[in-house]
Design a protein around this nucleic acid. Structure first.
Lengths: 335, 335
DNA sequence: TTGTAAGCGTTATCAT
DNA sequence: ATGATAACGCTTACAA
């Protein structure tokens, strides 16, 4: 920068002024500066800027599992919002790196990160998240900590769950089983609540619907489906409501391996509408959430927090859409 | 930091010494310093460090499409290698952000990034990549620029392609079609070369095997499969060699939509072994690459470049593994 | 062994 | 409208 100043025969402050439009500069001098910048192929040193401005123009994105396409889509949304503001996004994959959340807290305090978008996904202990939130601005995606009201971007999972469940029930199923998500997770609770509402509305006895607790991973879908379906035929559920697509896929895999036909013998519904849901055989009936938009929104909320000291705008839950496909059919009226 | 020094009643340099083990410090003073650090909950300001050290402890990862699980896995590998060195990984998704590569070049020069791992995937013009490489250390993954010998981490795609093609030919297929990748891409060339070798080895006429050019995306797999199969039955290929899984999936989708049975009517083979390959019906025969390891290795190579000024170690191509599954069978000897 | 002080490249305050 | 100059928080000769 000194070089630029010299080359343009002005002072460094003038250079700074034109670079940031932060001060009045005479036309001729301004021209000389931009000319010098070009001539020397000058690029401002961002480290120095960051030091001065006490901000890194960088946010963190904590994502449990990139191979989960739902997360990948959210990530794209975050990326886009950040790019619009010339902010960098650093990936934090606790799963892959085996780092505790406290590490991210440290990143926040050390100014390497201005804020964090947190995709808990599979469930982190609330206290850890609170620790993180103490260290700097945090926005949760598709998650909420009961009791504390951290900024969060969510979709209307309860409604979505009610809708799929109603749809399934509308097909005439009388014996269902629910393969739910981890107990501590807000989304899991919401979806479970939605299922229950629909079941109650259909006049079914809630006691008659087993509620299994999974962990949102394929394997648990597999083993819980096995568990749910390993009962005498007359009690066997004719439909499985899975709280996310991964578990639904696991359930599907189990059925394949056990020779149980879907949807003829048992219907399966998922949640999330990951890109592969429609590529499976049968195509998975599920509920889609606007993943990219949610990521975009989350980042936007974060930037609002970073910008103004003020508001923490309440955002509506995002709408969800029932995706009716082949994995759900009417129960075959055997016996 | 000044506060810490005061609290411990030492000078700032002493604090710095203990924080970095960069100087000899007496036991008692050292103890006082770490005590003070704890007491004040001090976290070093990384921006200042970066300014001083002229490095950002941050690398960039350019990835065209996160929803592609192969890339997601590579990303996990990169993350892990970086985390081991306390280096941050910033995500650059040109697709999502619509930013030209020159932008990444600027990031390199402005010290926001120390280096870049580049996953071209779908193909970037070589000249742009070279521009990037001029601005700082770059490691390519699964890609190579012909003529220039940039550091790159690759797998033995040619071998893999030969193996899968041999396997298919071994099943007795006489009429094949190749759905290849973008012409400029090194991986696409390699795989094509491998296919050709196997075809020649089987004594088939190369002219008799149509080589279609796709773009590695599902849609092109769909439409090229349509094109390849829309010929009189006696000339119709009985097997499709797809240069990646996404196109294979597209081909599969086309067959489903057209009522063509796989593998009974036509066999399909892919490349990459993305996680969903084994979840499809039929399960996709494909070639797996150690994606996570490749990412890890790429980051490692980059760090070597950053560390020592010296070597640019030649790395062996990673091994590939043929995954035999259901989507390939012997041709039905109709007619 | 420990402290002093000179930068690192910017921005911003203040005279001019 | 412009230019010195003092921070920003840290590292590192160099001096003591």
């Amino acid at each position: 920068m000194k070089d630029v100043a010299k080359h343009a025969d002005v002072s460094v402050s003038t250079v700074s002024y034109v670079l940031n439009n932060s001060g009045p500069v005479g036309a001729s001098r301004r021209a000389r500066v931009i000319e010098a910048v070009r001539a020397l192929d000058y690029t401002p040193n961002e480290s120095a800027r960051n030091l001065k401005r006490r901000s890194a123009s960088t946010i963190g994105l904590v994502v449990p599992d990139l191979a989960n396409q739902f997360f990948a889509l959210v990530t794209e949304g975050v990326e886009r919002a950040a790019a619009e503001r010339d902010v960098l996004v650093v990936l934090c994959a606790p799963e892959a790196t085996e780092r505790p959340i406290s590490h991210h807290a440290k990143l926040l305090r050390s100014q390497r990160l201005d804020g964090v978008v947190y995709l808990s996904g599979i469930g982190t202990s609330p206290s850890l998240i609170l620790e993180l939130a103490q260290s700097g601005p945090v926005v949760l995606v598709d998650e909420r900590i009961s009791g504390f009201d951290l900024p969060a971007v969510v979709s209307d999972g309860r409604l979505g769950a009610r809708e799929v469940a109603s749809y399934v029930l509308g097909k005439g199923h009388k014996r269902l089983a629910i393969i739910g998500g981890p107990e501590a997770l807000w989304t899991a609770e919401q979806r479970l609540a939605g299922y229950r509402e629909a079941i109650a509305a259909a006049g079914l006895d809630r006691e008659a619907v087993p509620e299994l607790v999974g962990d949102y991973r394929m394997e648990s879908g597999f083993s819980l489906a096995q568990q749910a379906l390993s009962v005498p035929p007359k009690q066997r559920p004719t439909a499985l409501l899975c709280a996310n697509d991964l578990m639904a896929i696991g359930a599907l895999e189990y059925c394949k391996s056990a020779g149980i036909r879907v949807p003829e013998d048992v219907s399966i519904a998922g949640f999330d509408d990951v890109p592969i849901a429609s590529l499976l055989t049968p195509r998975l009936t599920t509920v889609s959430q606007p993943a990219r938009e949610m990521g975009y929104q989350a980042a936007t909320v974060l930037f609002e927090m970073l910008g103004e000291e003020n508001n923490q705008p309440a955002h509506e839950p995002f709408p969800v859409t029932l995706q009716i496909r082949d994995s759900v059919a009417a129960p075959t009226s055997e016996k």
